[in-house]
């Protein structure tokens, strides 16, 4: 997957192949190379997407595609627009009076910018996990059952199964199965974050958005969340914002680099971290700016 510049980049490489013998030989992580990452169906189509807060343009005509059941990491310095972009995917920015957007943001054929859209239904399909774990001041059980109950009524046994299944998916069941009715606030930070992930997946979303989900966790808890993200990848499309580039490299299939609201480069994570195409990406991932 490449961003909007990809056709011109490929054209450039064909032209340079005629002049430069280096261009004729195999390249590490060929840009646009077909593989299991780029072959996955498109979940989210982003075309000429721009977003503003009042007169400030936070995102500038971004185009790329998020693939189904892949982890896409959004990286870039603070204020580059990555969190704004994430928040538009489940319309969190509706709460911000000055926020507006243009262009195409399309999830499996549904126009996410359509004002007539039922955002409650959208948030069932697109779950979100935040920087700081935010469990409800309720029991562990009720934290998980809360979302599903909003959407429909359940028989007790059915809900029990759903709670167990969600906690198992979030790799938390074994640690909490004997205290499901204890307050969720008594869990450790890492456990609370996994509870939030369990809560998000309990409503059966297609997409999970994660906004720096490990930034408030210790290294051990971070590793557990990273393991969990790798496991969840087989069932959910995950878009994660992270400031930790090693984390992006470890867990994502695709990485998109944002800078000053523009998408500079998006591609296979292995390509972006070994052979970025753009100088700005190279300088950012090697820590020379940002």
């Amino acid at each position: 997957m490449r961003h909007a510049d990809a056709p011109s980049l490929l054209k450039e490489s064909r032209e340079s192949a005629a002049l430069n013998p280096l261009a004729n030989v195999a390249r590490l992580g060929v840009a646009g190379q077909a593989d299991s990452t780029t072959r996955a169906p498109v979940a989210l189509t982003v075309r000429d997407f721009s977003a503003w807060y009042g007169s400030f343009q936070a995102i500038k005509s971004v185009s790329f595609e998020v693939r189904t059941k892949r982890v896409t990491a959004l990286i870039g310095p603070s204020g580059c627009g990555k969190s704004t972009f994430l928040r538009w995917i489940n319309r969190m920015n509706d709460m911000v009076a000055s926020a507006r957007a243009e262009g195409t943001l399309n999830l499996h054929g549904i126009d996410l910018l359509d004002q007539r859209m039922d955002v409650v239904d959208l948030r069932r399909r697109v779950g979100m996990v935040f920087q700081k774990p935010n469990p409800f001041p309720k029991s562990i059980y009720d934290n998980i059952a809360f979302g599903p109950r909003l959407h429909r009524s359940f028989r007790r046994a059915e809900l029990d199964r759903l709670v167990e299944q969600s906690l198992r998916h979030a790799a938390l069941w074994e640690e909490v199965k004997d205290r499901l009715h204890d307050s969720a606030l008594g869990l450790s930070g890492g456990q609370q974050q996994r509870l939030c992930i369990a809560r998000a997946i309990a409503v059966g979303p297609e997409v999970l958005l994660m906004d720096e989900p490990c930034s408030a966790l210790d290294p051990q808890a971070t590793l557990r969340i990273e393991d969990l993200i790798r496991q969840l990848r087989s069932e959910y499309t995950i878009v994660i914002v992270t400031h930790n580039m090693q984390q992006a490299a470890r867990i994502s299939d695709v990485t998109a680099f944002f800078y000053e609201g523009a998408l500079i480069e998006a591609g296979r994570t292995i390509d972006l971290f070994t052979k970025p195409q753009k100088k700005q990406t190279e300088e950012y991932v090697t820590g020379r700016f940002g």
């Binding site: 002049l19 430069n20 280096l22 004729n24 030989v25 195999a26 390249r27 590490l28 070994t274």
Partner: peptide
């Protein structure tokens, strides 16, 4: 040296003379 310069892997590839 070629790999370090631009990520091109020429190992096990036929030699192409530079212009």
């Amino acid at each position: 040296v070629i790999f370090a310069a631009d990520g091109t892997v020429v190992r096990h590839q036929p030699v192409v003379r530079s212009a």
